[in-house]
Design a protein around this nucleic acid. Structure first.
Length: 466
RNA sequence: GCGAUCGUAGCUCAGUUGGUUAGAGCACCUGGUUGUGGUCCAGGGGGUCGGGGGUUCGAGUCCCCUCGAUCGCCCCA
């Protein structure tokens, strides 16, 4: 049961696959959100946001059956027709957003005429998927979406990948922790056609390749046979091109001359162009080609990639979707982007000891109190605490005090340290003369100051610290 | 949607072959009455053992159902 009857009334559990964010967890969440936002802005992306729920039809436009089955559906229940529709069809008129790309495509299509090319957008929305929760996968999660719209060049592909790598660098992750695995659907499709797969069977073949690792070899082979593909020869050919491309990547990274690559294929030429763009952004060492990456979604067109850490599900995934804006009623517009979830990212950070402790989070998130005011005298000193806190706050400082009933200085100072206050303002008998003692809790030094000097002194002191 | 394991205070756990008012550490609160920072001492609040049902003289301890978490399958936007 989700609720239990206790002496005090009902007790509820949170819904399956959701998280409660107490201050400690919230600080970690803010840390990730802030890094996402900071890095996206640094890379020239503007933040957008859309509704938490959309018309179900929006997700039906480009999705397969499986995806619709994972939707959290929503309806107002206000009109009998609506309720009837849900009963009859099992489909509600709205759904909580399972991904952001349809919203983004809709938003772009609506204002396409007035938007610059390229348009660079990012978002940090909550997403909802009615899946069975597992490690690294919940039913409600945050996802960082980064997209370049209106630029079909390899430069745009590299631009979004560079943003992902920039995020990893911001958080202290290194190329040894993560790999950006690159592929290209056009290249794989081209090779499929060259191997005798009919045009109509190419999408099925891509899906097959995507699932290759998750099915028994016999099944894979028989399925290949059905669409006229010789799996052994094809995989060998694919591996050969992959090897060539990875050699080219290594050569470029080490500043050696490019080994000869067959550039007669437009797709191969595209990959070479992508390499040059990645090199220009100094992120080659994070990347490698892996043509087994196909991505499940049908709407991907050219470059596709996944970012993985050892032993984890993908931390991010994305690619080029040049047809999607058009499908949502906009002009033909190339686009590329990726999504990165907070759940796996958190796991990877924790696994590598890169999640900051409470004190570091307070510093990074700027939540350390500037001043913690305590009384060290008689009742008149006690009475001065609240007015002084108010005074500091009016001066724009983050001021706190203790809510304990004790008058023991050591316990009050402990209270100050517990919230990582930068200074403790100690009101003692000198207060009637207009001075207080200020203890700098970061270095232990203590100073006598006039009351009116406090805000300026605290600010200067704070600015002087690294 | 399927299978496996687990579920005792806010957290980490202990609870002998079922037996008196369920324990510890940490955290939290209050004291140790003029005292300067993660010490020390004493005291206190807080669990009816995820929830429901059953077996039994008696269940946290056995059985069934259910909720949740974890791992795998499906799926993975």
């Amino acid at each position: 049961m989700a609720e239990t009857e206790g002496k005090r009334g009902k007790k509820f559990q949170g819904p399956k696959g959701t998280r409660d964010f107490y201050p400690r967890e919230m600080a970690r969440r803010r840390y990730i959100e802030q890094a996402w936002r900071k890095v996206a802005i640094r890379h020239g992306f503007d933040e957008i946001e859309g509704p938490t729920f959309e018309s179900s039809d929006l997700y039906a436009v480009k999705s397969g059956e499986g995806i619709l089955g994972e939707l959290f559906q929503a309806f107002s229940g206000k009109s009998p027709e609506e309720v009837e529709q849900v009963k009859a069809t099992g489909r509600a008129p709205y759904a909580l957003r399972p991904e952001f790309t349809p919203t983004l495509a809709r938003m772009f299509a609506d204002k396409a005429a007035s938007l610059p090319r390229p348009t660079k957008w990012f978002a940090i929305p909550l997403h909802y998927r009615a899946e069975r929760p597992q490690r690294g996968r919940l039913r409600e999660f945050l996802q960082w979406n980064v997209d370049v719209i209106g630029d079909g060049s390899a430069a745009a592909d590299a631009e979004v990948i560079a943003a992902a790598v920039g995020l990893f660098r911001e958080l202290g992750l290194e190329s040894k922790h993560l790999t950006v695995r690159l592929s290209n659907r056009d290249l794989v499709s081209e090779m499929l056609r060259a191997s005798g797969v009919g045009e109509a069977s190419v999408p099925a073949a891509l899906t097959l390749l995507d699932r290759r690792d998750r099915m028994p070899p016999e099944v894979f082979e028989s399925s290949c046979a059905e669409i006229g593909l010789d799996p052994i020869a094809f995989i060998r050919g694919l591996d050969e091109v992959q090897k060539q491309m990875n050699e080219a990547l290594a050569a470029l990274e080490n500043g050696r001359a490019n080994p000869p690559i067959d550039r007669s294929s437009p797709a191969t030429a595209g990959l070479v162009a992508l390499l040059a763009e990645l090199a220009a952004r100094d992120i080659l060492k994070w990347c490698e080609f892996d043509f087994s990456i196909v991505r499940g979604l049908a709407y991907y067109t050219g470059t596709v990639f996944e970012i993985t850490a050892q032993g984890q599900r993908a931390i991010a995934g994305g690619g080029r979707y040049d047809r999607l804006i058009e499908m949502f009623g906009g002009p033909p517009t190339p686009a590329v982007g990726f999504g990165m979830g907070d759940v796996v990212l958190s796991l990877v950070l924790e696994e590598n000891g890169l999640m900051p402790d409470e004190a570091m989070l307070a510093e990074y998130l700027n939540t350390r109190p500037d001043a913690f005011i305590i009384s060290a005298g008689g009742p008149e000193c006690d009475a001065a605490v609240v007015p002084l806190v108010a005074e500091m706050r009016q001066a724009g400082l983050h001021a706190r005090r203790s809510y304990k009933s004790t008058s023991k200085i050591d316990k009050l100072l402990k209270d100050a340290a517990a919230c990582f206050a930068r200074t403790a303002i100690i009101i003692d008998d000198a207060y009637s003369g207009g001075t207080v003692s200020v203890k700098d809790l970061t270095d232990g030094t203590q100073h006598i100051l006039k009351r009116e000097e406090l805000p300026g002194w605290i600010r200067d002191r704070r600015a002087a610290k690294p």
